Simulated assay, not measured.
Amino acid sequence: MASISTPVLPEFSLKNRVIVVSGGARGLGLTQAEALLEAGAIVHALDILPEPSPEFDVVAVRAEKELGTSLTYHRIDVREEQELNELIKDIADKHGRLDGLIAAAGIQQETPALEHSGADFDRILGVNVTGVFLTAQAVARQIIRLGQKSGSLVLIASMSGTVANRGLICPAYNSSKAAVIQLARNLASEWGKFGIRVNTISPGYIVTAMTDMLFVKFPERREYFANGNMLGRMSTANEFRGAAVFLLSEASSFMTGSDLRIDGGHCAW
């Protein structure tokens, strides 16, 4: 009989791996960062907020006191190419390695297409597509520079990159998420020779502080969104923890150029 100390499913371990999480100051990014910490990773969170959410400090303390690892915050705009590359290089140099990325930084705006300004459209694409590309590029450069044999990049897309959301008018946001899915495929095709895998996660509707505010303005959407999928409810950020660990670990070592859609069956109707 195996000892109780024998690792269970060791391919899911992220022990000592160094992972960057953009959009990691709060919400889905922070939830996924905590999952990586629990799997043993050292995590550096990037976000544009002057200070991370209060929950961030709780997770950071837990990382140090309970998990024997660390969670570090860096304030940065992912569209600032030179500053971003310098920061990612500093992180890689500090640890002598860089193993992965969750690119979760993103913004959303609900505006009908006939009323959408070009400036706002460009701003959304700038963060959601260009910012994701620049972050992935900066991390890949360091993996290659350090001569590592493998790396895993996870780009947060959305089911909105596959379908148009009925009742939710977000032409720029939805277009940006479709672009992220296609971007991942192309990066995977280029960087596979370096052992770098690139995949996307496409969540369905998630209960967040942002959606709660939306429901105050449009209370009918709470039920409408829930009834749009096969499970009859919205998801929580915690339901995407396992997907993050899976894609960044050896458990998914032969998976690249793929989209992991977790939408409660919304797109399967």
Rank of each mutant, 00 (worst) to 15 (best):
H95E: 07
E81I: 13
L98Y: 01
A104E: 08
V78F: 03
G68N: 06
K94C: 10
H74Y: 09
S117D: 06
H95S: 05
H95N: 10
P50A: 02
I76V: 12
N85Q: 10
I102M: 10
D99S: 00
G96M: 01
P54G: 01
S117T: 14
E81L: 10
I91R: 04
G96C: 03
A63I: 07
A63E: 04
A92I: 03
L101V: 04
G68F: 05
V61I: 15
L87W: 06
P50C: 03
I76T: 04
A119F: 10
D99C: 02
L71Y: 07
V58I: 15
P112M: 06
D122H: 09
T69D: 03
Y73R: 04
P50S: 03
I88F: 02
K65F: 07
D47T: 02
D93Q: 12
A105I: 00
I48D: 03
K94W: 07
E81W: 11
L98C: 05
D57E: 15
E66R: 12
E66S: 15
T111W: 09
V78W: 01
R62F: 11
L87Q: 06
G106W: 06
A103Q: 00
D93A: 10
Q109K: 14
A103Y: 00
L71D: 01
H95D: 07
R79E: 06
A63M: 03
I76K: 04
I102L: 14
E51R: 07
A103V: 07
D47S: 11
K89C: 12
A60P: 04
E64K: 15
D77V: 10
H74I: 06
E64R: 15
Q82W: 09
S53K: 06
L49T: 10
G118P: 08
G100Q: 01
P52A: 04
E110F: 13
T69E: 01
E115L: 14
D90H: 11
V61A: 12
R79Y: 07
D90L: 11
S53F: 04
G68T: 04
A104I: 08
K89N: 10
F56D: 05
I91Y: 05
E81F: 12
T69C: 02
Q82N: 13
T69N: 01
S70D: 11
P112I: 08
E86N: 13
L114H: 15
L87E: 04
G68D: 02
G68I: 08
D120I: 13
D99I: 08
T69G: 05
R75E: 09
E81N: 11
K89P: 06
H116D: 12
N85P: 05
Y73T: 09
F121M: 08
A113Y: 12
D93I: 11
L84M: 01
Q108T: 15
A119Y: 11
V78G: 02
D120N: 14
I107K: 05
E110T: 14
I48R: 10
L84W: 01
E86K: 12
R62S: 15
Q82L: 12
L71M: 09
P50T: 08
